[in-house]
Design a binder for these strands. Structure first.
Lengths: 129, 129
DNA sequence: TATATCTACATGCAATTGCATTTAGTGGAA
DNA sequence: TTCCACTAAATGCAATTGCATGTAGATATA
């Protein structure tokens, strides 16, 4: 708990200092950008993130209002939608990474050797559902 | 992030299932109970917990209203107060532990060997401020 | 001993979150 | 077809959080 809190706080703070939105926005943008087969369904996004369904719904409200994603009606499924990252969204993602990468390094990577990082990752993996 | 989320979610869920308040309440009660040299100052509590000052102030409001702690005026310092756990608070802490311990075990301890636990703890320690 | 500075804690207000439920649409079985 | 159980997403409302600031008392400084 303390370690996660420390690392997360540092990262979030660095985003704030740079005038960027929170980490969750980055996560959304990154998921959309990396898969990019023309967008993702919210329920699919949800499964990659750590946000509950209603949390994602409202997170998308905000991110969309800010112009970083678009919600489009979904072809095969009338209930659903497809979330697409905008050009502006890609831009923000890239600029956030400029801040995120060094923050991650100083909060995590710089504090561990490569071997330690691998071990930590393996051990934490054992705690996953 | 995922590992912490998984473990925390399981623990919180087990508290909910048992009709108990959230983990933060436990943390407060435990800090008060273990140090117990007749109570602690909020700023001191804060340094042991992962809650910001205003967060603790309101957390104490709730825990106090529920009768698990008392806020008393502070002798040497007119600005401050001393937070004391009540008998009811100790009782709750003990009952919560009955749920917390097995939840922790199944979320964490049971998934790691003793050696792994020690290693994980050591590596996470390197991420602390 | 005034007065400025700092520390401890609280709080108004806006934003976010959690919970339960709603709305809309799908797919399957009778 | 028609009905029903199920999935996708949104939302009303209450609780919690974050931020900035307020208040009161301590401490230091000139």
């Amino acid at each position: 708990m303390r370690a996660q809190n420390a690392a997360l706080t540092q990262v979030e703070q660095s985003f704030k200092d740079a005038g960027f939105p929170p980490l969750t926005w980055y996560d959304v943008l990154w998921e959309l950008e990396r898969g990019d087969r023309a967008g993702m369904r919210p329920f699919e996004l949800e499964s990659h993130l750590l946000v509950p369904q209603y949390g994602l719904s409202r997170l998308l409200d905000r991110v969309e209002k800010a112009g970083y994603v678009e919600r489009r009606p979904c072809d095969g499924d009338g209930r659903g939608q497809v979330v697409v990252i905008t050009k502006l969204g890609r831009q923000l993602r890239r600029r956030m990474w400029q801040v995120y990468a060094p923050a991650l390094n100083s909060a995590v990577a710089d504090r561990l050797t490569a071997k330690e990082t691998a071990t930590l990752s393996r051990l934490l993996g054992k705690l996953l559902p």
